[in-house]
Structure formats: structure tokens, C-alpha cells
């Protein structure tokens, strides 16, 4: 009886795997590096990294939920940061943020339109747009960086978008919480969310039930672009400057966070909460390596290994949960 109820729990909550990993890692990091890792300053910094990566990954998970993939998010993140930083000094934080979000929506629209209109593989297409918009970012900055003068970084509105703290944590973290709540409500409790998951689960079924499949996919791409650009805005706001390389390789971390968090790569299963925990685990590992003086390139190696292990163990856990009824 006990075993079957645990199975039921795992079956319905794919994020349980990542939650266990997160708990074990936090315990291990806290004990093995004493207060070097688990101190208020470092935890606040992990919260900020988790926030920007988390927002990026939340968007990517929605596209993944429809059975497509968006790996252009790293460049959209960079474009978002550059648009925000390039305009914030002249038009103010709120219009600059909206402009960045619009740019992200535009990239998402382009991705979604090309994928649904021409039936191109989203992996191939977004790989191309990843390169295209990285090129645009580098061209925009002409090899230099965009920055905001120091005297303009103290305003309340500037601090609202990643440029300051609220209750001891960077404002990006509160945006992540808000984004998570809103997206969870959308995905699990609205018809739009039900249809998004249906498209990822079975395109044929979704179509036969009268769902406009292409429209659902297009919306997911647009939402993903907006979230990526907002994540870039928050990161840009925090740093105060950005160059053309902003967000490079973030796309891999975002997809890793999705897979770690229990999203099915082929669509139909999305755990938004798991995605955020996945982003937290990746940020924690990164921070652990930094505070222990490990070279950053080891993080990339470790990231690759973690994703493979996560994919295998996720499969094993699901198989176990589905086995006996």
C-alpha cells in the first residue's frame, strides 16, 4: 500500500526527483563548505542567478511543453538586456522594460511563425535564430558594451527591474515568484494551459478536438521570447552594463533546468515548479564551485554530466512509477 501511494505521488508530480536532489545538494554544500556557501550574501546571490535563469527556463519549458524546443533563448536574453540598457537612460525603466519585452515577443513571433507556417524543425530553426540574434547583439554593441551611468542606477523604478534589492534579495527573485505563480495558474487552471499540454501530448488528438495547434505553439514561442527578454532585462539591470556576449550558453542551462525539473523533452509534461528548482540546483552548483575556487570551465563539464544523469534517472523513476498499478 505504501509503495503504491509513493508511486502515485511520483506519477503525478514529476518534480519530486529534482526536489530530492536539491535537498541533498543543499545539505551537502552547507556541511562541506561551512559558511562559505550557506551565508546570507551567497544565498542572496544564488537567488538572483536562480531568478534570471528560472524566468528564462520557464519560458523554454512552455515551448517544450508543446513538443517544440526553443534554443534561441540565450540570444533573446542578450537582446533583452541590450535593448533595456540601451534605452533606459533616455526613456526610463518602464518603457525600456516594455521595449525589451516587445523585442523578445518579436523574436518569439518570428520563431513560432517560421516553425508553424513552414513546418521546420524547431531545433534547427531556433539554432539558426540563436546565431542570428547573437550576431545582432554583437553588431549592436560593435564590440563594446552598453552601460547605465552610476547616477541613474539609484532610482526606485531602476531598482525595481533587477537594479536593487527588496527584503534582502534582488528584485529579480520577486519577479520570478510572480512569474511562477501566474504561469502555474495559466498552465494548470485555464483552458489555454490544458490545450498547451494536449498539443504536446498528442498533436493528432488536439487537432481532432478542434484545437488550433499552430496558434497554441505560436503563443508559446511568443511567451517564451517575452520571458527570455525580461530575464535579460533583470540581469542587465543588476549588472548595469552588457556586451554582445550577454547570455551566451544560457540556452543550455535553461534547457538543462527544464529537463532536470521533470519536463518531458518531447512535450506534454511540464512542471513549472520543478523548472525553478532545476534552475536553483544549477545556480547552487555554480556558486559552490566558485566559492571553492574551482575554475568555471568545470561547471560546463559538470552541467553536461548532470543533464545526462538527470535524463536517465528521470526515465527510471517514471518507469518505476508506471510499472504496477
Amino acid at each position: 500500500m505504501m509503495g503504491s501511494s509513493v508511486r502515485q505521488l511520483v506519477r503525478q508530480h514529476s518534480e519530486i526527483g529534482i526536489l530530492l536532489i536539491a535537498i541533498l545538494l543543499v545539505a551537502f554544500f552547507s556541511f562541506s563548505s561551512f559558511d562559505k556557501w550557506a551565508n546570507a550574501y551567497n544565498l542572496a546571490s544564488i537567488a538572483q542567478i536562480t531568478a534570471t535563469l528560472g524566468l528564462l527556463a520557464l519560458g523554454a519549458s512552455l515551448v517544450m511543453g508543446t513538443g517544440e524546443i526553443d534554443i534561441s533563448v540565450g540570444s533573446t536574453f542578450g537582446i533583452g538586456a541590450l535593448v533595456y540598457l540601451g534605452t533606459v537612460a533616455t526613456i526610463g525603466p518602464i518603457p525600456a522594460m516594455l521595449l525589451a519585452a516587445t523585442a523578445g515577443a518579436g523574436i518569439g513571433l518570428l520563431n513560432g511563425f517560421l516553425v508553424t507556417r513552414f513546418g521546420i524543425s524547431s531545433l534547427m530553426l531556433t539554432l539558426s535564430t540563436l546565431l542570428v540574434f547573437r550576431g545582432v547583439a554583437v553588431a549592436l554593441t560593435e564590440g563594446f558594451s552598453f552601460s547605465v551611468p552610476y547616477d541613474q542606477r539609484s532610482g526606485f523604478l531602476y531598482q525595481l527591474f533587477g537594479g536593487g534589492d527588496f527584503l534582502g534579495v534582488n528584485t529579480a527573485f520577486w519577479w520570478l515568484l510572480l512569474g511562477l505563480i501566474v504561469l502555474m495558474a495559466f498552465l494548470y487552471a485555464t483552458p489555454g494551459g490544458n490545450r498547451l499540454l494536449a498539443v504536446g501530448g498528442s498533436v493528432g488528438t488536439a487537432h481532432s478536438r478542434g484545437i488550433r495547434v499552430n496558434r497554441v505553439k505560436l503563443r508559446a514561442f511568443i511567451l517564451c521570447g517575452i520571458l527570455a527578454a525580461l530575464a535579460g532585462t533583470l540581469e542587465g539591470g543588476k549588472l548595469g552594463f552588457a556586451d554582445g556576449g550577454m547570455g551566451r550558453l544560457m540556452e543550455l542551462q535553461a534547457i538543462a533546468a527544464c529537463v532536470l525539473g521533470g519536463c518531458a523533452l518531447l512535450g506534454g509534461r511540464v512542471s513549472l515548479f520543478g523548472v525553478v528548482i532545476g534552475a536553483f540546483v544549477l545556480s547552487s552548483i555554480q556558486s559552490f564551485l566558485v566559492v571553492n575556487g574551482v575554475q568555471p570551465q568545470w561547471f560546463m563539464l559538470l552541467l553536461g554530466v548532470i543533464v545526462v544523469v538527470a535524463a536517465i534517472s528521470d526515465r527510471a523513476l517514471r518507469d518505476w512509477a508506471l510499472r504496477s498499478r
Partner: peptide
Amino acid sequence: VGLCDNLSIARNFYLG
């Protein structure tokens, strides 16, 4: 086709 394996019976019932 007609039912999505990844959704509950209740969600499938009213899909669309």
C-alpha cells in the same frame, strides 16, 4: 487519437 495520455480523464473529457 481522441485522448491525450498525459492528461487526466476529466481534462480529456472537455478538451477543446
